[in-house]
């Protein structure tokens, strides 16, 4: 048993898991407030990362300026998407809602391939040093930054929902749309806002992953990896999303470790979360923290 590798993989899992947690949080936010399952979550990451890359490489802006511009762009993008495409879908059956986000995902994936090509591109150098030693482990600076950003986003979510007026309005809408509307909350704005926030925060995650691995088509796979995480945590629980994300991040690294050491099946890193997903759906379909659907006749 190779303990050093195991610990390195666990740390990696935790770092990637935190990012999964952030993406899952955006997914849950959209699901909770608008009842839309966003299959285009991965494309938010993809679009955000490419737009930021274009700002940095084509327009040669400094990183933080380009990054802030990207966030502004993505907020507008999310809001517009909600207004143009998803508003007409309110009240439609679930299959239509799922299919429209799948349609969006195909569209933007192909559009990004068309504009930026299929080859992975890397960001210009942002940090001077590549990696630092922490307690004998090699940790990349970009990873440290990603952890810091993930934790910051989680804290920001907490304060936003607990202590701000808009956050309260969003929670009220998620609880009961009609009651919220009768109390003077504009449900329309809440819907648009939740898509805007989801797009912005996902784009941040996309840029962070892009800094580490480069930008490519594979970013959109993150949107699918998020499903095991949210199902494990429960579809409508923000805390569950974080717990699920970290669990899945560690789990896929553990699966990779045991596979490379003992089983030699291959491809476990990508496929293990889906086995877990099926098992959870089999035994506990509403996840760890989700609310169970109870139907009245």
């Amino acid at each position: 048993m190779n303990f050093e590798l195991l610990i390195q993989l666990l740390v990696n899992g935790l770092i990637v898991g935190l990012l999964y947690g952030v993406i899952a949080m955006c997914f849950v936010l959209v699901y909770k407030s608008t009842q839309i399952v966003n299959f285009a979550q991965g494309e938010f990451l993809l679009v955000g990362a490419w737009v930021c890359w274009a700002f940095l490489v084509y327009m040669e802006l400094p990183f933080f300026v380009g990054f802030l511009l990207t966030l502004a762009f993505m907020a507008a993008f999310g809001v517009l998407l909600q207004m143009i495409v998803l508003r007409p879908m309110i009240g439609e059956p679930i299959i239509s809602v799922i299919m429209i986000t799948i349609g969006l995902s195909i569209f933007f994936q192909a559009l990004m391939k068309w504009i930026f090509g299929v080859d992975p591109q890397s960001y210009p150098q942002v940090f001077d040093t590549q990696s630092v030693q922490i307690m004998g482990l090699n940790v990349e600076v970009a990873y440290l930054m990603s952890t810091a950003i993930a934790l910051f986003i989680m804290a920001a979510f907490y304060f936003f929902f607990k202590h701000s007026k808009h956050g309260l309005a969003m929670r009220a809408t998620a609880f009961d749309q009609q009651v919220a509307q009768s109390l003077g909350i504009s449900v329309k704005h809440v819907f648009a806002m939740s898509w805007g926030i989801a797009a912005t925060v996902s784009a941040t995650a996309g840029v962070v992953i892009g800094l580490v691995n480069g930008v490519s088509d594979s970013l959109s796979i993150m949107g699918i990896k998020v499903f095991p995480a949210v199902i494990l945590g429960g579809l409508d629980s923000i805390v569950g999303a974080i717990v699920g994300g970290i669990t899945i991040g560690i789990l896929e690294n553990l699966a990779e470790f045991f596979d490379s050491q003992y089983f030699h099946v291959g491809n476990m890193y990508d496929i293990a979360p889906f086995y877990v997903l099926l098992i959870i759906l089999w035994f506990k379909p509403y996840g760890l923290f989700g609310t169970q659907d109870i139907e009245r006749i």
Binding site: G103, I106, F108, Q109, A110, L111, W114
Partner: peptide, 23 residues
């Protein structure tokens, strides 16, 4: 050159259009 991508985009677009205008 981008014909393959345009085809994919068309599929996505057609799904969205049909769901909005002719569900």
């Amino acid at each position: 050159d981008g014909l393959a991508y345009i085809k994919e985009m068309a599929i996505g677009l057609v799904i969205i259009m049909f769901l909005i205008f002719e569900p």
